[in-house]
Amino acid sequence: MTSLDATPTAGATPPGTKTTTMTLGKALNAGLRRAMQDDDHVVLLGEDVGALGGVFRITEGLQDEFGAQRVVDAPLAESAIVGAAIGLALRGYRPVCEIQFDGFIYPAFDQIVSQLAKMRARSGGRVTLPVVIRVPVGGGIGAVEHHSESNEAYFAHTAGLRVVSCADPGDSYRLIRAAIASDDPVIFYEPKRRYWDKGPVDLDAAPASLDRARVLREGRDVTLVAHGPTVKTALAAAEAATEDGFSVGVVDLRTISPLDMDTLMRCAETTGRMVVVHEASTFLGIGAEIAAAITEACFHVLEAPVLRVGSYNLPYPPAKVEDDFLPDVDRVLDAVDRALKF
């Protein structure tokens, strides 16, 4: 596969002159600021994104810097936010929408699935809709209902959308800028329980490509595939597995649509065993797609079926039980054991 991304796929980017340590939330803020400085057609729309800077402060300070015309506090209506973003894009702008929480994206479902995703294809490629929809996603923060969902599979299942999921500060900075630069609509997932995690961010780094996974850790025995919030879980599980003498690799998908099948196949060939970890329920989740695609592409090298670790096929439960619901290191290690025993 050809990629215009010149940077190595391994986790650490070579330190640039402007590498600083910041939280994932601040890195996204810096990425948005940079995109708005570079292109005055980038506008932000969302609930409470102005003076408040969004409920997670990802747009903090941007209205002060770029004005209320470019950082727009929308009326409280998600369908309006996405529908208006489509109109802005038709007029040549690059809107970045914020959906306040994962569970509140559904009022905009028609605008996303039937309008945003399809307009380019309908127009025979004449219409370009560079719209980004940022979504704080996933659980683990003890929140009330509708604030902890993982709904990437709905959107990945919709042709015409790119789906991106960022995992750490440095990469989030690169991915958000790539998403804004993309001429395709992008659903951009931000792992809300990792917003406060700190890491190095190279402010000079080029935007990432939107079709390349990252191998964060090479392994010989098992490959863990994760995205967004579960990347950290997978890394911790891989580390724990070394204590038992196993060499476990970790791939951060970064993009769910498209999937970087080259990287996944290469890892499957190296380890012969693969476990996909995500917060969404396993039934018809991204793990199911990866398991099927890897089985089809490299059945002959597999030592075990591709296993999935996710949450159960239940509505996201009340906060007091979310720790039993979300995949944790124990559940990942359990799957690693099962894969090794085949």
């Binding site: 609930e47 409470d48 102005g50 408040l52 409920v55 009326p75 409280l76």
Partner: peptide
């Protein structure tokens, strides 16, 4: 108010 959004921006 709707969180930080005043009614003047709402309607």
């Amino acid at each position: 108010w709707a969180i930080s959004t005043p009614t003047s921006l709402q309607y």
